[in-house]
Nucleic acid binder design. Structure first.
Lengths: 469, 469
DNA sequence: GGGTATTTGTCCGTATGTATG
DNA sequence: TCATACATACGGACAAATACC
């Protein structure tokens, strides 16, 4: 037991569990704790250190989340193999050509990665078990085609208080991801619609428009978001925008642009705005900006969002909020449709939200991501003014503008040669000619541990030959 | 805590706390904030709105003074009952028109109803809990875009042994229902494809073709299934068929027709067959007929099926089996797509199948449905020869041919007057002129208890004025 | 059921701008 | 011009209550 002698400072600023976590992590990395070693039980260690079990639990949970130890149900906690900066890759299938492609990088700045370590798995499990235990066999049958009312009510209430979206539960249509909902919307808006999309923009939605044989008009994006003046020059009837954190530039649609855009929409009968609020949950500085839907008076904004970033991507839940007149059209157009979301999952989420865990989780995650963001920006600050940061107000990625005589694709290549995957702004351009004079690179930070960020930035700058100032 | 999106104007004349106070008062009066709702804590709101706690304090104090909210020490602020009735605008939860429609019948012969009483809920629960307990956080992230390999392997193995479908797990694409998969397939097959559909046929798929602006050619159906001679006369390139139990006639595609259909498909490069095996699991008499996919040599059959009938409709799981060359096309066409089925559910089903519960359940259900079917046919036998039965070899509905001088729609009406919902064959016709000389009625039996069937048949015959012989 | 970390309302010290005399 | 009072806004200390398993 003597090897578990860990010095804790009860008067220190840093919480006890954090001290404990740091100590154990160091011990594992140093090699003092060998792979496979069983850690002392929560009760034993708590008694030994004269602290609470909960504190140990917190420390262990953090270690589990970061892969240093693993938990075996009803047996104990065991030390795992660790290699610094080694990212946990999902176990891939062998036979499948799709997955046999092994990435030739060990550090990935992809913007879609999220942090699952703090997901309240236990709570989720609890509600999942409750639903399974208490639910009747009626839940096996089909529910409401737009999703069960219980969940739609929770979403409506959340949207109002958190995003300023004003809607009745009846206006919400639940679906299994943007991939499933956007096609419905596209069919609803008719084949004559011409879609204005942000350039650069989100490739998945662009792909969906094109794949549905719809006309697409790219509109340039600047630091205030989509250039509405340019939009007004086109014959587009539907504008697809990401106002709260434009993808990929990170721009936030300015107040005047918002008004201008809404005016554009209400000027003609068949004009609509699709507001994709994909990562609006995470805004770090400044006043919250309400959704377009909330300030729209003319019922022209169709709101779409998802739980992929805020809860988990694998849950496959997203939703549309339709204006009333479009809702009626929807019901006429898709009379045979059933909801594509499993009802058991709907009920788990509804209960989870009802108990307030969703808001809590968002608050927790906002803090975590803010810390990561701060780490990232402070790490990058050493390399100014060659490297400038933008798009850091919200979301889970930032944009670097790099003052080098290289294209962004060349920079991606240079990084990749050192095993670092970053993403070029030009990859998201619809038209090939990118006006931006300086190369821009996207850095997603959601998937990193806070402790890994500084090192990763260093390696990236080394790869580009930029030294700190 | 929820985030309360309130627009504050820092440059305005009116003080911040007054703006805040007004906003919240309005929200309470409108009913946006329900009685008992907990307001965000001062710190949270202050942080979120980037203003001081004191400002919030002032606003809250004002609201407390005027009775809109109450303060509970160290717990929070809560919305109070607003007494003034004059404020009440409109009830927020207007009864949903879709949900408020109450059926004006007490007996329903709908063919989509299934028997949930024998569903092995306990087993399912067990595996669901196991997955929740044992699964790692990796399950929160996206899995394979076609569905996790584990489940696709189980499906492939089931399809081979029970349906004669030959496929590798790689060829399977998991989706959340036919509604989600068919559109993918339609887009994959291109806009120039002309779809031959059964007439009468399944309205949902027909609807999906039309909704995607695809050309549709109805092909008549007789007691041997789709008339392939008629198909050959058309310029259709894709034939959508339900060979194992044609919907709605219940016909089983004959052996010679199967060969003829496969020959039709292989005669030209761009021809395909979509085999919808929606209720193939339940076949009651005669040898099981293998799927078209299994006897196809030229890779022209696209197989689609679902777990809606065999497990539960609310699970939302269906799958496509693509020929290899189409699979490659699929991966090229939809490079950005993710699976729309929640991974936790995928793993539950995979374990459920792996342990053999799925086959067991099918065997059990087959027995149960067979008994119901026997009860139904024996009850109806008393009314022969006025009432003839067909389509009773498989599936969960039969077809009655009634020797009365009435249309089937008139018969539906007569039944409805007595509180019995039955379905007319003509409702499923694509073209309005129904050739069938005698009226035909569909009777689904899945949703009935065995004991209820005789009485229901009696009531139905009474409604039609048919007496037993 | 216990006990610790965290959240929460309450209270207080302070700073700034404005109006008043 | 200066002193005083008030309104508004910011930040922190404290102790009670809650969340968490």
């Amino acid at each position: 037991m003597d090897m578990w002698l860990i010095q804790l400072n009860k008067t220190s600023q840093t919480p006890l569990y954090a001290q404990l976590y740091e100590e154990m992590k160091e011990a594992i990395i140093r090699g003092d704790l060998l792979v496979g070693t069983k850690l002392p039980s929560k009760r034993k260690l708590a008694e030994f250190l004269s602290i609470s079990q909960t504190t140990i639990e917190l420390a262990y949970a953090q270690l589990v989340a970061e892969g240093f130890i693993s938990s075996v149900s009803r047996r104990g906690f065991f030390v795992e193999e660790v290699a610094e900066l080694a990212y946990v890759e999902q176990p891939r299938e062998i036979a499948d050509e799709l997955e046999s492609v092994k990435p030739n990088y060990s550090i990935d700045f992809h913007s879609g990665k999220i942090d699952t370590s703090a997901f309240p798995f236990n709570q989720w499990r609890k509600y999942a078990k409750d639903v399974l235990d208490e639910s009747s066999r009626d839940l096996l049958l089909l529910g409401h085609p737009q999703g069960d009312l219980e969940l739609r009510q929770e979403i409506a209430s959340y949207l109002y208080s958190s995003r300023g979206v004003r809607c009745a539960p009846q206006q919400i249509i639940l679906g299994s991801g943007t991939e499933q909902l956007m096609p419905l919307l596209i069919r609803l808006l008719g084949k004559q619609s011409v879609y204005a999309i942000e350039n650069p923009g989100y490739p998945l939605t662009h792909h969906i428009f094109v794949n549905h044989d719809r006309s697409v008009t790219p509109i340039p994006v600047d630091s205030d978001g989509m250039n509405v003046n340019e939009l007004e020059k086109t014959d587009a009837s539907v504008a697809y925008v990401t106002p709260s954190h434009q993808f990929p530039t990170g721009a936030i649609l300015s107040a005047s642009r918002r008004v201008q855009l809404l005016n554009w929409a209400s000027a003609k009968e068949d004009r609509y705005i699709i507001e994709d609020d994909y990562d609006s949950e995470f805004r770090y500085i400044g006043k919250p900006i309400p959704s377009l839907q909330g300030i729209d008076q003319s019922e022209r904004v169709i709101y779409i969002s998802t739980f992929s970033k805020s809860l988990m991507p694998s849950l496959r839940m997203a939703y549309l909020v339709l204006p009333m007149h479009i809702l009626q059209e929807y019901r006429k157009t898709f009379p045979y449709y059933s909801s594509t979301v499993p009802r058991l999952d709907q009920h788990v989420l509804a209960q989870f939200m009802n108990a307030g865990h969703f808001s809590k989780h968002l608050n927790r995650m906002r803090k975590i991501y803010r810390k990561k963001l701060e780490k990232l920006t402070s790490s990058l600050a050493d390399y100014a003014p060659l490297v400038q940061i933008s798009g850091e107000q919200a979301g889970m990625h930032i944009v670097l503008t790099i003052d080098l005589e290289k294209t962004d694709k060349e920079l991606v290549k240079l990084a990749l040669d050192q095993g670092i995957r970053v993403y070029a702004r030009s990859e998201y351009m619809v038209t090939s000619n990118d006006q931006s004079s300086k190369p821009q690179i996207l850095l997603g930070f959601g998937g990193f541990l806070e402790t890994e960020i500084e090192k990763a930035v260093q390696l990236l700058m080394d790869a580009w030959g930029i030294s700190s100032t």
